[in-house]
Design a binder for these strands. Structure first.
Lengths: 195, 195
DNA sequence: GCCAAAAAGAAGAACGCTCGTTTTATTATT
DNA sequence: AATAATAAAACGAGCGTTCTTCTTTTTGGC
């Protein structure tokens, strides 16, 4: 029974995901056809359907992946960037988000993923879970603010986490929808307002 | 030549826009078919196409309308709620946003509109323009903060406006995607972080 | 170690279905 | 009666998906 190397299968799958991700980021999930994905990936219909049961599976995979990537940068902050001030923490987070600024990239996918999740309960639960994990970790970050005296001892860590997440999400929207908004300029406003 | 009253025409158009808005808010622009719109509005294909050239026009109208509604609440703030503290200003804005929380409503439409604008340059320009107008007005609000001594005199008003807009946009995303987030709870975090 | 046989992978044409839209027929209004 | 407004059937295009064919890779007997 012949079988191709697992590494090859993984590479093919990644090839498909990346190509579809570029298409989806540019035009949204429903404005890109499967034929667009075939063309972008350089593969045929048969090949793609060997790795994914259908378009919905591809969408779910990529939408969750995009939000997951943002979550990863929050986790990285927690691993290495503790005891920063609120402003410096946000500087770090927004700077990481800067990596998602390209037009084929994660930032735009995330916006599409939000919309898609509104009409797809299963996907919504996946994305909501990722967001809750982010909130958990951002609450830990907020706890660090309290510990370092940046926030009052009775501050609501989880509520502060919502605020931090908003500032990340809002940056993505304003950069991609409203137009060019550099991390530097955005941080100026944050520092002014956070004092 | 019989002609129906203009008021009747306007009412019909509004009927279509509202029905389509409910569909779009629930399932997104491309997951709702025109037939869904016909059913929701209680009208036939012929009737709808008498008022709109096609689905794209309907989408553009409704997407711009959703963002425009948020803009209107910012303008209302400027007209009546000057010289509030940053925290109270946000309380007012988020409270207004609370009106967009229902599942058929503006909040969800706005998220879909962002996604749609990414792949549609014309719509993107319309939405970007609305956002810029909001930023202009929020910059005036920020100027009020400086005047009242809440912010340093050299604060960058426009940059602060971006932050305020983020806090509004992030609330919408977190309420509709992550799950129930009351304005009250959200404001706790804002007050903690803004000091 | 090599060669046939078998099994899996990939390609691309083809299919059926749904969608947006148009066209035709009917109803209502002046 | 004449004409606008509406209803509803019908159409053509484009979609996601499947099916058939061909190629590539692996296996087992010699």
């Amino acid at each position: 029974m012949p079988k191709v190397a697992q590494a090859h299968l993984d590479a093919r799958r990644r090839q498909i995901v990346e190509a579809a991700g570029r298409c989806f980021a540019r035009n949204g999930f429903h404005r890109t056809s499967m034929q667009d994905v075939f063309a972008e990936s350089g593969l045929s219909a048969g090949a793609v359907y060997r790795y994914f049961a259908g378009k919905d599976e591809l969408i779910a995979d990529i939408a969750a992946g995009a939000v997951g990537q943002v979550r990863a940068s929050v986790r990285a902050l927690l691993d290495s960037g503790r005891d920063l001030s609120p402003a410096d923490t946000l500087a770090r987070l927004i700077d990481d988000l800067g990596a998602f600024r390209d037009p084929d990239g994660t930032g735009r996918l995330m916006i599409h993923a939000w919309g898609e999740s509104l009409g797809d309960p299963a996907l919504r639960e996946v994305i909501a879970a990722l967001n809750r994990e982010m909130l958990d970790e951002l609450a830990e970050v907020a706890d660090g603010f309290v510990g370092a005296g940046h926030l009052p001892a009775d501050a609501d860590r989880r509520a502060v986490a919502h605020t931090l997440l908003s500032l990340m999400q809002g940056y993505v929207v304003q950069f991609h929808v409203t137009g060019d908004l550099t991390p530097e300029r955005y941080l100026v406003g944050l520092r002014d307002l956070l004092g």
